[in-house]
Structures are given as structure tokens and as C-alpha cells.
């Protein structure tokens, strides 16, 4: 599984596609909000955390369609299975790779997004902590949706429909982290949501992949 993970990272580096596009998309979505709601710093500061979260969620969706699809098309998935890897191991490696190549760079860009939205400097840490804790859940849920839609035409749109509702709790608790009154409770709930997503998703995604090979 480690071998698969390193190869995924190497491929992501050589192909230089998904991750970088997701990052640019994230920044563009963030910078659309000042155009839409006006550039007043107070307004932007008020909505900053929510905007960063929604933008991160949308950016995470972008690379999901290519998570399993190329491997299913070129026979790599079949080979991984005949080489003795379990579907659960494949799904886990893919989810980790997605987080490392998409979510982690997004995380590093959040201070930039926070500056653009005039978020108070004190909130950056909580925002980043929330994303660090919440994005693994997004990758996990996304991995399940990507596995379930392998081989479908228009799989990409379907992935969005599947992921967004399931990501609602993560979004609520992630933004809730910045609430001075309910912050600690939100932190616990966010951690719990991520743990549940991480523990369930390899099995759900594996079931999806197994069905895709039938």
C-alpha cells in the first residue's frame, strides 16, 4: 500500500495537473466573493471563514473524478487486485494521496485566502486547524463517491451531488470552530465526524470498486 501511495504521489508530481488546478480554482473562488458582495473589509471579515470552507470544499471536488477513473480505464485497477492488494488498501492509499495532493496544498494556501478576505489574524489559526481536521473527512467522503461512480459517464457531476450533502456536518463544525462560545464543542464534533468518515470510507469505497470490476 505504501508502494501504491508513493507511486500516486510520483504520478501527481509528473502529471502536474489535478492538484495545481484545484489550488488556482480555490483562490479564484475566494476572490469572486469580494466582487459579489463588495470589497468592504468588515463584510469580508464577517464571511471569510465560510467562504474559505466552501471554496476548499469545491476545490476538493475537482480532482475526485480522476481519482479512480484512469486506473479503471487503463487496467491498473485490475492489476492492483491481481497483485494481491485488497480493495480497502487501494481505497485507503487513494484517499491519503488525494488528501496529500489536494487538501494539504489548500491548507497551506489558507493564510493567503484569509488575507484576501481580510479575516482577522487571530482567526487564521482556528481556520487552518479546522481545515486540517476537516479535510481528511472531505477526501474520505470524496473517495467513496469517486469509487461509486467509476466507469459512469458524467461521473464528475454525480460526485458533486453525492459529496456535498455528506460534507454538510464537516462544514458546519469546521466553521463552528470559530464561534467563541461553541468552539470546543465544534472541535469535538468535527474530530468525531472525521473519525467516522475515515473509518467507514475505505470499506464503502472498496465496495464501490469491487462493483466497478464486475
Amino acid at each position: 500500500m505504501l508502494r501504491l501511495l508513493t507511486r500516486e504521489l510520483r504520478l501527481a508530481w509528473v502529471e502536474r495537473s489535478g492538484g495545481a488546478i484545484a489550488l488556482i480554482f480555490f483562490l479564484i473562488v475566494v476572490s469572486l466573493f469580494p466582487f459579489a458582495v463588495g470589497p468592504q473589509p468588515q463584510v469580508l471579515a464577517r464571511i471569510a471563514a465560510g467562504v474559505v470552507w466552501v471554496a476548499a470544499l469545491l476545490a476538493c471536488l475537482l480532482s475526485l473524478e480522476r481519482l479512480f477513473q484512469p486506473d479503471a480505464e487503463d487496467g491498473t485497477l485490475e492489476q492492483l487486485v491481481t497483485h494481491g492488494l485488497s480493495f480497502e488498501a487501494i481505497a485507503t492509499a487513494k484517499i491519503i494521496a488525494h488528501w496529500l495532493t489536494t487538501a494539504l496544498p489548500l491548507l497551506l494556501l489558507t493564510p493567503l485566502a484569509a488575507i484576501l478576505l481580510n479575516a482577522p489574524a487571530a482567526s487564521w489559526g482556528l481556520l487552518a486547524a479546522g481545515l486540517a481536521l476537516g479535510t481528511p473527512a472531505l477526501s474520505a467522503i470524496g473517495g467513496v463517491a469517486a469509487a461509486l461512480t467509476v466507469g459512469l459517464r458524467r461521473g464528475g457531476i454525480l460526485i458533486s451531488l453525492l459529496v456535498l450533502p455528506l460534507a454538510v456536518p464537516t462544514l458546519i463544525f469546521g466553521v463552528g470552530l470559530l464561534d467563541p462560545l461553541a468552539g470546543v464543542a465544534a472541535l469535538k464534533w468535527l474530530a468525531a465526524t472525521t473519525l467516522v468518515a475515515l473509518s467507514v470510507s475505505p470499506f464503502a469505497a472498496a465496495a464501490g470498486l469491487r462493483a466497478a470490476l464486475e
Binding site: R10, V14, E15, D74, G75, T76, E78, Q79, T82, G84
Partner: peptide
């Protein structure tokens, strides 16, 4: 332990 060659060759284009 088996080796399987299906219709696809499982090659990554960039490698």
C-alpha cells in the same frame, strides 16, 4: 501468486 494480462496493459503514460 498469479500474473494476469487483460485487454489493457496497465501502463501509465507519463512514466
Amino acid at each position: 501468486h498469479i500474473a494476469y494480462l487483460g485487454h489493457d496493459n496497465a501502463l501509465k503514460a507519463v512514466l
